[in-house]
């Protein structure tokens, strides 16, 4: 077996399910589908008056990578506005080799996805949904 992808850190992030579930009264929500693989992410956010995320909930119908990414994103999203989320996205893109530089935590866990181009979108889908929710 050459199992480099599903390392413990990714599996743990997915199993942690940080932020999994619906918010009761979100300020904004957005849904993103990946038509190629059928993954689907719905993100709810509650925003404070300054446009910062005060609560986040995600519903992922998708693979482990997508779940792990949504979980990682939710773990760092609170207190950030759209620009702050863009910085987090940069970490994710660094981890999977789309951008130069070191990925910050917890996204360094996604480094094994670098070699699996067909799975990059799985990691980025929650970011796409959150971007829609914040725009």
């Amino acid at each position: 077996m050459n199992d480099q992808l599903y390392q413990d850190r990714i599996v743990s992030l997915a199993k942690a399910k940080t932020g999994a579930g619906k918010l009761a009264s979100p300020t904004k929500s957005a849904r993103r589908d990946n038509p190629l693989c059928g993954d689907r992410v719905i993100i709810d956010v509650k925003l404070d008056d300054g446009g910062k995320i005060s609560e986040i909930g995600h519903q992922v119908r998708g693979c482990l990578l997508c779940q792990a990414s949504a979980s990682a994103l939710a773990s760092v999203a609170v207190g950030r506005n759209a620009a702050g989320i863009e910085k987090v996205r940069l970490d994710a893109e660094r981890a999977i080799g789309r951008e130069e530089g070191e990925a910050g935590e917890p996204f360094s866990a996604f480094a094994p996805v670098k070699a699996h181009k067909s799975r990059h979108e799985c990691v980025l889908l929650p970011f796409e949904a959150l971007k829609d929710a914040l725009s």
């Binding site: 077996m1 050459n2 199992d3 480099q4 992808l5 599903y6 693989c37 993954d39 998708g62 693979c63 482990l64 990578l65 699996h116 799975r119 799985c122």
Partner: peptide, 14 residues
């Protein structure tokens, strides 16, 4: 409890 894509990806490693 395991998404089909993760099954297929694991199988690829075999």
């Amino acid at each position: 409890g395991v998404h089909p894509h993760d099954v297929a990806q694991t199988l690829d490693s075999f």
